[in-house]
């Protein structure tokens, strides 16, 4: 995935079954953001794989004051890349293990 300067990782181990996953997001390289972000630390949140879109969550983070409006796309992309990887793992890895 492209280096967006924003890191998104699983906040808990994925059991491959739950419809919601816990993710943790933090800024690794603030220079890649257009707006100034506060020193937020790591933001943990749950993401509903089938109901939500990364764009919704990114917008909520902007609304909550974590990020500037101009960075909503880079936040959404960072979440989208991680979610895509998790879904890829679920489709490819889990069937092989079970």
């Amino acid at each position: 995935a492209e280096d967006t300067g924003v890191r998104v990782e699983l906040a808990e181990e994925d059991d491959g079954r739950k419809s919601s996953i816990a993710l943790r997001l933090w800024v690794e390289d603030a220079k890649k953001l257009k707006g100034k972000s506060k020193d937020n630390g790591a933001i943990e949140f749950t993401f509903e794989l089938e109901k939500e879109t990364p764009d919704d969550v990114a917008q909520e983070m902007v609304d909550a004051g974590f990020f500037h409006e101009s960075d909503v796309k880079i936040i959404a992309k960072s979440i989208r890349d991680r979610v895509a990887l998790i879904q890829w793992r679920r489709e490819r890895i889990w069937p092989m293990l079970h």
Binding site: E28, E44, F45
Partner: peptide, 27 residues
Amino acid sequence: NSFTQVVHSAGRRFIVSPVPESRLREQ
């Protein structure tokens, strides 16, 4: 812990905690 902050927005709960030093990229 005392460094953890909970922010509610649009029905979602964000839990904010410090990033462990080891997870920060070397600049």
